[in-house]
Design a protein around this nucleic acid. Structure first.
Lengths: 201, 201
DNA sequence: CTCGTTGGTGACCGCTTGGTCATTAGTGAA
DNA sequence: TTCACTAATGACCAAGCGGTCACCAACGAG
């Protein structure tokens, strides 16, 4: 009553494709697909099959390379080297550099930055992501410690972090409202005075 | 080879319980359980069975009362009446009132405020939550419009919103770092100057 | 041309999920 | 006490998940 070798197909890539056989390229394609998927839909809603389809492979291969969905997340969304690099330098121009560096970085990745993926993952109560996020915050605190004077350093840095989290949320997750509609240049101009007052009183 | 009427049980409440038969009470218990669950674990990770267990009923009853998980979300997490009420009043003391009202509100619900639930739901790309969130932002903008002078009102309000989103994320979602460890009073004191400079230059 | 190696496949599995519905049992009125 | 009414239950379902694995086919070495 069923001559075919299976009852229900489980195919991943729709069109018939030639096998590529290039493990490095496959790995890279999967990682990029994973980054985009986790940033766009969050950890919980992203399925291994989603990532596979984007990368043009089968979900079996994804698990073969990365063992589990969590391992894939860890490989694709690595500790996003301090949200704002280039912190070192003159204290007076610090806010400007932070704003520029933040906006450039987000613009380059087109909204699929690891930072966005981590925000989403943390929001859906993903323990792994929380650990990464903690490490990231520690890193950034260390960098500020050498540049900024005064007491309440921790609190000020935490507030800047919170502010940028909120901006990221509005602009790249929620994607609605004035902050989402500004151009990159407008956003930089808008951020600078706020960062300054939070950071330097 | 199987005398029982079913193979795998699907029970929800572990201990044998008497049937309560009180639709109003059930509804209320389910709604409260849903609010807490959505705020604690996010929309994607919360299952209908989770909510049912918390409420002490079966998951069948939850769906019977609310039809679907999404309807349940909409019923449990209603438009959270402008994050900060009591905005009207003197402009000079506005930041203080916003900070107080925000902190009190969050403290009262013990971190299971609808606002947190919505943040989490939006982060996992839930369209329904996005719509609620948009409405909420519109509401709050309306209220500010009558109280605050000057241009760039939209941008300033959006930035305050973003800042509070970030603070909420750090304190009630991520639950780590200085902002999470502050007492309510400390947080109020910390927020006021930042809110003031963002809102009033 | 063979043939061992190995990147890649897709059927399969156990389990969980959101959702349905026939059945069961409390309850107030007659 | 009986009985209609209906809140509540829990077995059931299809779909989809993460994860496994026997197999297949593309390549380089001989």
């Amino acid at each position: 009553m069923d001559t075919s070798p299976t009852n229900l197909a489980d195919q991943d890539a729709a069109p018939a494709k030639k096998r590529r056989r290039d493990p490095e390229a496959s790995r890279a394609a999967i990682l990029e697909a994973a980054r985009a998927a986790f940033a766009e839909r969050g950890y919980a809603k992203t399925t291994v099959r989603d990532v596979a389809r984007r990368a043009g492979v089968t979900h079996g291969l994804v698990l073969r390379h990365f063992t589990s969905k969590e391992q894939l997340f860890l490989a694709a969304v690595p500790s996003p080297r301090t949200l704002m690099a280039e912190v070192a330098g003159d204290t007076k121009t610090l806010p400007t550099r932070i704003a520029r560096s933040y906006v450039r970085r987000m613009a380059e990745s087109g909204g699929s930055d690891p930072f966005v993926a981590m925000l989403r993952a943390v929001a859906s109560e993903e323990e792994t992501a929380k650990r990464l996020f903690t490490a990231m915050q520690q890193d950034s605190l260390e960098m500020y410690r050498q540049v900024i004077p005064g007491p309440e350093l921790e609190e000020r840095v935490a507030s800047v972090g919170a502010y940028l989290i909120g901006v990221t949320f509005s602009r790249y997750v929620f994607r609605s409202g004035p902050l989402a509609e500004m151009s990159d240049e407008q956003l930089v101009r808008h951020l600078i005075p706020n960062l300054r007052s939070i950071l330097l009183d």
